[in-house]
Amino acid sequence: MKEWLRVFRAGLSIDNPLTVLMIGLCATLAVSSQVEGSLFMGIAVIFVLVMSNALISVLRKLIPSQVRIPIFIVIIASFVTVVDLFLKAFFPPIYAVLGIWIPLIVVNCIILGRAEAFAYHNKVWLSVADGLGMGVGFSLVLVGLAFIREFFGAGKIELLGATILKMPTGYAPPTILMMFPGAFILFGFVVAFVRWLNERSTDRKVA
């Protein structure tokens, strides 16, 4: 259980896919302009990541290493398509928000990266922990980034059709935050902040 927690927490902090491993950035920069889209993207990624990690870990002894990448891709693409069809059939409003980003989870390198780096070499329950940790770590940073971008870049936060937070009137939002250059700059600050946090906590452990 201890090891399970350790693996899960690594995804949130010292091995966070976005701020430390720096993978899956293209989808992040694109989706993080809206909190709503980011939230659902996070949930979809967590699902796909846990499922593909679990399945690949179960099959890891049967998959020859020479052909592992094609097999990983087929497994991941299948799960993503399942998510795509299910969202379309049962949650059309959410599908309308996410639209084009769902199929793009296939090429999100976090999922292939974790299959290759973790699930292929570890036990099933640890792979599930890794998938959950990485997925939640990804979602937290994504939603945080989206919150800052939408709140300061658009002046309000909208969730499920309702405005839940609004800047005072007269606030002129800097549009650069909504565009990719602004996302890059902001992301740089977030990375610096998280690294500072991580370093501080490891320093304390050593001392």
């Binding site: 049967l62 998959i63 020859p64 020479q66 094609p70 097999i71 087929v74 497994i75």
Partner: peptide, 8 residues
Amino acid sequence: LIIPVVLT
């Protein structure tokens, strides 16, 4: 090599 890919 082929069989696992085809089965998957």
